[in-house]
Design a protein around this nucleic acid. Structure first.
Lengths: 159, 159
DNA sequence: ACCCGCAGGTTCGAATTTGAACAACTTCGT
DNA sequence: ACGAAGTTGTTCAAATTCGAACCTGCGGGT
């Protein structure tokens, strides 16, 4: 009989830890669906696309390098290429090549893109409040910001 | 000029709320990737597949109705059909029709499935600790469990 | 100036997810 | 009982995601 080599038994999750992990999974899943749904229905955008518009709108000249944008959105370069392509088809974003690096590409927010974002934002914020923010009290929000901030930071490529 | 009808301006997110939302998004994204990666690399399972095995292993006779399973995993019925199909190909799960309802289908954990889960579990738990649990202190875990529990519950189909 | 290692984006195919449409069946009200 | 209405699980096509392979071009060391 083939035996699988023993993995050292890890410290299992106790009840509280299990509750936290399960809560995280369920909240994650349902909040994502809720937000995705709202944006799709009311603005015709995916959450990914919405976030791209947000980043661009906050950047100088409304433009950002592809790689930098991908990192900021916690996504892959190829995934971003696809979504920017979609947004470009709709005229919400343009591409131009980077002046300082021939290889580079800048995603640029168009006037239409800015308008689409303006239109989509109120409903999106409302959905985020309904799903997450307004369900938590101030103390809980503080813990989320700090604790999950730390969690995210630790998993960044940079460490 | 076509005018977009005004949406009532929502209450925008203040700094703390924004930090919580951003933290949630980043943590969500990175933790999911971390866990997904570990399972894929060390056990050849997707997180979705792993969770299916977990649920089944905790059920009487290791079997659950498809719909019930889908709800428990916060996923769609068609998504589950696909994943159970994958697991069935590998012999980790079987299907049998429900005795009390001809339409119904039970997903059943096989001995191989139970073994695969046993093998995968230690590494998975370790990954979850690394990514989330061990990064938070007791109080933070309590807030996650309670606060995010409430968040998830409120978005359940049942309300 | 030249070469090698590496970074920037895109492309490709494979895997997955989603919702709508469907067929078969159960259930509830009357 | 009977029929309308709702369930159950699957199938399908379309959209998305991922990583590996790829080509091009930047930069440091010699």
């Amino acid at each position: 009989m083939a035996q699988t080599p023993d993995s050292p038994a890890p410290r299992w999750l106790d009840e509280q830890e299990m509750a936290a992990w399960h809560g995280f999974l369920e909240a994650t899943s349902r909040v994502a669906r809720h937000v995705e749904q709202q944006l799709k229905d009311e603005a015709g955008l995916s959450h990914a696309q919405y976030e791209i518009l947000v980043r661009l709108s906050g950047a100088p000249d409304g433009e950002i390098r592809m790689t930098e944008l991908a990192e900021g959105l916690f996504t892959t370069k190829s995934g971003l290429t696809y979504q920017v392509g979609q947004l470009e088809k709709r005229g919400l974003v343009t591409r131009r090549s980077c002046p300082t690096d021939v290889r580079g590409v800048l995603a640029v927010l168009t006037a239409e893109g800015r308008a689409a974002l303006r239109d989509a934002a109120p409903g999106h914020v409302t959905a985020v409040r309904e799903a997450l923010i307004d369900v938590l009290d101030a103390e809980e929000l503080a813990v989320l910001a700090k604790g999950l901030g730390r969690v995210g930071a630790r998993l960044r490529p940079s460490g």
